[in-house]
Design a protein around this nucleic acid. Structure first.
Length: 897
RNA sequence: GGAAGCAUAGCUCAGCUGGGAUGAGCGCUCGCCUGACUAGCGGGAGGCCAAGGGUUCGAGCCCCUUUGCUUCCACCA
């Protein structure tokens, strides 16, 4: 039975129905099968706070294309899905929501808060998954994971304990980035620097004289952007070779307000050129100062509370907010005559990527991962090509980070996340790191221990994602079979957060890379090239696009016209174009099926195929090879562009048009069968090539075609359940028809030439005219003879005559010169000879240009001696071609004189 | 301060290992309801491939310099 196809493609209804079918049939599901080669991708787990955005749309389209391509190639594919608990992002959202309800997080308490968090997870965690399904993503949903599910929790604890045992994880007081609003430490990667307008305060401290008293005349002047931190100053630094201050080496200055005597130290960190060449040193509140402090054994004076107010060490400034204190302290210094001047100054300020709060560097006890050794295998892997980064330039970015890596602060003062498996003895304070809370303290035997209240950086669990989702730390069959995974697809913006950390974690815990290739894509921007953001309100919801244009159109848009790793601009004209293409495919299929209706279509054998059939089959054959190659090397955009061009230009605009007269006006059933068979065969393979990109429409057509085939004639699709599990087309030697390709190209050129002239001369399409093909070449004449039928319909010919010379052709006929032949069209009364001569002269000029170029090359001895033979042969062929055409044009000009 | 990317048709971008830019979409323009498709068909205009130098038989593509834009990293107080 055949289903009636609508005149325009309407994705609504079709997409959901097909996705249901795929799920029901379990096509996405993968099991270990040693008879087949696995192909694995783990999804970058979207946050449970998230909504599907354009970045996801691009990311997941790319993954699904690779997955569907490999599945059709016969690999046992697994696309491992899941979501991320997104520790801080989620906690911030829940805290905000609580605040709206008038509830304070701390009053609610940890346990109740976590209940709320799990409720949140339940409510929103599924949302993004259903959105991914709308995109057509063929993930194995039976294996869906969550970074805080039981298995992942075990993996995280296990990894932590093992790394601690090996000394890779340690606890220490170090300077970290503190977010006073979120009340937690954050890693370096979470700090973004923003240029802000601020001030540079020039301040002076009195030098302590020989008598031990502060001098009234000698001062040391310096500049600072954060004057309030002076409360924590424990030194003033100068460059050791700075002669201006050489006499102060070994001396001290008086820290005003606090009235503390602090030393003048020398350190090469000081830039003599900047300001006065003097720096105040606040080890507790500046990373550089912290390092200087370590080198000079300076005390660390913390002056700030967690909420960025001044602490008890601040004397009468205690309790003031940092900015309030800044003002008060500057006022005080001015009062004491120690403020030299205030300058406007624009500088970079570190802010928290989640809440945009200015980050405060603080010294705190935190857990760290020691990076120097761990990172080594990750560096080697990329250097040696064990792991390939695409595009390759990403390696620069990668090494830039690995070369300057600092220890990773992994503890967070948050509740939503994996709690650190460290336990403190309530009596002696001994720390035990273990998978479970010990019964008693291993040191003093005390039975009461308390778990570390902190949780882990969300990326700590994400770093284990490629193997924890396959069962690690158990050595499961899944893990042995599917790991290492094949490709990681992700945006370049999380290379530091995630990609690098997965790589070193993979080597550390699995002893092997987590993936073979990393395929990076760029950002999706708006039509003007701006980042899509909430504050700008320029975001486009992929679901709306799907609703309006269909998932296939959106998917195609995400892939075409964009080089790998480059950012993409999104605008609706592009989606419209994709939608139009879907419609084109739809209608071409409709055309083919309408013509197949009620006919028995059988495979004709090469001898019964006409040149046009062979041409399109041969073109398809080449396309299959190229597209497969491109996709194997992850050139997804190039591949689909070729399929697009083939379908629209070659198949629809040429082949289908060539075949119409055979189907409509001829009684030759053999020829008709050959045409129908070719149409069907090319359509099926083209649909297959397109399927990874546009899964829904290709499936819909494929199944409709199968159903109608089942009703009549010989079926090639009988038993085929779905295009998505059908075999990927292969290049076939017996489908390469070089001669027919050339012949049809000549005819196409002739058709184009005639159309061009007719348009230029304003000949109405309804007005047909005879066409004489004159050629001394029997091959060309026979090619035209074979294509006579469609040539007539494509070139508005009332009749087509083949002859060896121009006997009997009107003298004033218009002529078209193509390689190897001249075509004449007698238009009788309306030809303007002068105009015709002009046109021929133009053509002559063009040919002269071509000939000059070819001759230039071929008369260059160095070209002849150095260029590859194939290139020389190619140019020689062109020379012959253009020479012949030139002769024809000249002859014609001669005749018109 | 360090690094990377981009600069090709009016606009947005392709151009895969160096071999006439018959580049794509949109826009523009002229003509078509040609029995799949007006979400369409046919024709056309429009590009010294940012500038300058080099390598090469040959450069949009490789190297160097310059200019403009974007981004990442560092964070000099």
């Amino acid at each position: 039975m055949s289903r009636e196809l609508a005149k325009t493609y309407d994705p609504k209804g079709i997409e959901d129905r097909l996705y249901e079918k795929w799920l029901e049939k379990k096509y996405f599901h993968a099991e270990v099968d040693h008879s087949r080669t696995p192909f694995t991708i783990v999804i970058p787990p979207p946050n449970i706070t998230g909504q599907l955005h354009m970045g996801h749309a691009m990311d997941n389209t790319m993954q699904d294309i690779l997955i569907r391509f490999k599945r059709m190639q016969g690999y046992n594919v697994l696309w491992q899905p899941g979501t991320d608990h997104a520790s801080i992002a989620t906690e911030v959202k829940i805290t905000e929501k609580l605040k709206e309800e008038g509830i304070d997080k701390h009053e609610l308490g940890r346990e109740k808060f976590l209940e709320r968090a799990w409720a949140w997870k339940k409510e929103y965690g599924g949302r993004i998954i259903s959105q991914l399904k709308k995109m057509g993503s063929s993930c194995d949903w039976d294996r869906e994971r969550f970074t805080m599910d039981e298995g992942c929790n075990r993996a995280v604890t296990d990894a932590f304990v093992k790394m601690h045992e090996k000394g890779y994880i340690y606890k220490g007081a170090r300077i970290i980035n503190w977010c006073p609003v979120c009340n937690t430490s954050i890693s370096d990667a979470e700090v973004i620097y923003e240029e802000q307008a601020g001030h540079l305060w020039h301040i002076k401290y009195p030098v302590i004289g020989e008598d031990g008293k502060p001098s009234e005349t000698e001062f040391l002047t310096f500049a600072t952007t954060r004057p309030e931190t002076m409360l924590g100053d424990t030194a003033v630094a100068i460059h050791p070779e700075d002669e201006r201050y050489a006499h102060l080496i070994g001396k001290s200055v008086l820290l005003p307000i606090v009235n503390r005597v602090i030393p003048v130290v020398t350190d090469t960190y000081v830039d003599r050129e900047f300001g006065t060449g003097v720096v105040k040193i606040t080890p507790a509140h500046d990373p550089n100062d912290f390092e200087v402090g370590k080198r000079h054994d300076l005390p660390i004076v913390n002056i700030m509370n967690d909420n960025a107010t001044i602490n008890a060490g601040g004397g009468r400034f205690e309790g003031m907010d940092r900015y309030e204190a800044r003002k008060a302290i500057v006022d005080e210094l001015a009062k004491q005559g120690l403020l030299v001047k205030i300058e406007d100054y624009s500088h970079n300020v570190g802010t928290h990527d989640r809440c945009k709060t200015t980050v405060e560097p603080l010294v705190k006890e935190q857990w760290f991962v020691k990076m120097d050794e761990l990172i080594q295998p990750a560096v080697e892997a990329v250097k040696k090509g064990e792991i390939k980064l695409i595009p390759q330039r990403m390696e620069k970015t990668y090494f830039n980070w690995t070369d300057n890596i600092r220890d990773w602060c992994i503890s967070r003062q948050l509740w939503w996340g994996h709690r650190i498996p460290a336990y403190y003895c309530d009596k002696c304070g001994e720390v035990t790191v273990a998978g479970e809370m010990p019964e008693k303290c291993p040191k003093c035997g005390h039975e009461h221990l308390t778990q570390d209240p902190d949780t882990l950086d969300t990326w700590f669990s994400s770093a284990l994602w490629p193997f924890e989702t396959l069962g690690w730390p158990e050595q499961t069959e899944d893990l042995k079979y599917f790991y290492p995974t094949d490709v990681l697809v992700t945006g370049y913006d999380i290379v530091f957060f995630w990609v690098i950390r997965m790589i070193f974690s993979g080597y550390e815990h699995m002893g092997e890379k987590p993936f073979k290739t990393v395929l990076f894509h760029g950002l999706v921007r708006d039509g003007q090239g701006r980042k899509m953001s909430k504050s700008l309100g320029n975001g486009i919801d992929p679901l709306e696009v799907i609703d309006q244009y269909g998932a296939d159109a959106l998917r195609l848009t995400m892939i075409t016209g964009n080089a790998p790793g480059n950012d993409m601009r999104f605008y609706y004209e592009r989606v419209e174009n994709s939608r139009n293409f879907a419609n084109k495919v739809w209608n071409a299929s409709r055309f083919i099926m309408m013509n197949m209706e009620g006919k028995e279509v059988t495979e004709p054998g090469a001898a019964r195929l006409q040149p046009a059939d062979k041409w399109i089959l041969s073109r398809l054959n080449t396309l299959i090879r190229e597209v497969t190659d491109n996709m194997e090397s992850f050139e997804l955009g190039i591949a689909v562009q070729k399929v697009y061009d083939f379908i629209w230009d070659e198949f629809c605009d040429w082949y289908i048009e060539m075949v119409k007269p055979r189907l409509y006006d001829s009684d030759d059933t053999v020829s008709q069968n050959a045409a129908l068979w070719t149409l069907k065969t090319v359509l099926i393979d083209a649909l297959k090539l397109l399927h990874p990109y546009m899964p829904f429409i290709t499936e819909e057509i494929y199944c409709t075609l199968r159903d109608m085939e089942g009703a009549s004639g010989e079926s090639t699709l009988a038993g085929e359940e779905s295009i998505m599990i059908s075999a990927w087309p292969k290049y076939r030697e017996d489908r390469a028809f070089g001669k027919e390709e050339k012949d049809i190209e000549i005819i196409k050129e002739a058709v184009r030439g005639i159309r061009n002239i007719r348009n230029e001369m304003n000949v109405a399409p309804s007005r047909k005219a005879a066409v004489y093909v004159v050629s001394g070449d029997d091959g060309i004449l026979s090619a035209f003879t074979e294509g006579k039928l469609f040539f007539a319909s494509l070139a508005y010919a009332s009749d087509v005559m083949m002859q060896k010379d121009k006997a009997g052709i009107a003298q004033d006929a218009v002529s078209v010169v193509i390689p190897g032949a001249t075509l004449y069209i007698p238009f009788a009364e309306l030809v303007d000879i002068a105009q015709e001569v002009e046109r021929l002269k133009k053509e002559k000029k063009r040919l002269e240009g071509e000939l000059a170029r070819v001759n230039g090359m071929l008369s260059n001895e160095r070209f002849l001696s150095k260029a590859p033979e194939s290139k020389i042969a190619e140019e020689k062929e062109k020379l012959t071609k253009y020479t012949r055409m030139m002769e024809q044009v000249e002859t014609r000009l001669e005749q018109l004189k």
